[in-house]
Amino acid sequence: MLYSEKVMDHFTNPRNVGEIENADGIGEVGNVKCGDIMKIYIKVDKGIITDVKFKTFGCGSAIASSSMATEMIKGKSIEDALELTNKAVVEALDGLPAHKVHCSVLAEEAVKAAVKDYYDKNGIEYDETKFCDGDCCHCSKHSEE
């Protein structure tokens, strides 16, 4: 089998699918040209992510990675969400095939982009270098390994 049971579960029954109206932060990363786009919406209350939803255009592992990432940050503090790594997403999914690891990177970046948007909207200062520009096709920040 190409994917673990966990991946298939999150792919066929994705958690937190949808949009949030009046979201406090929206992050979108990826590029249709490359075949993956992830969009994550967060609702924040007193520094806690109280709700999160996503929409993803992409392969099975992209959908599963977004689903897993949203589960992992729901109910967590903004700071904790920023600590989410693609590696943690891969582990939680019981692994991804090597050529699909970039999907978990997209999930990490989508979460960060949503937080960045939240910071921007609320005039909160942050360290720019911690965030990507969202052009995942030509990303050099992450290795695919």
Binding site: P14, V32, K39
Partner: peptide
């Protein structure tokens, strides 16, 4: 399409 941001 229902879960695709592109479709949206």
């Amino acid at each position: 399409r229902g879960i695709s941001p592109v479709w949206e």
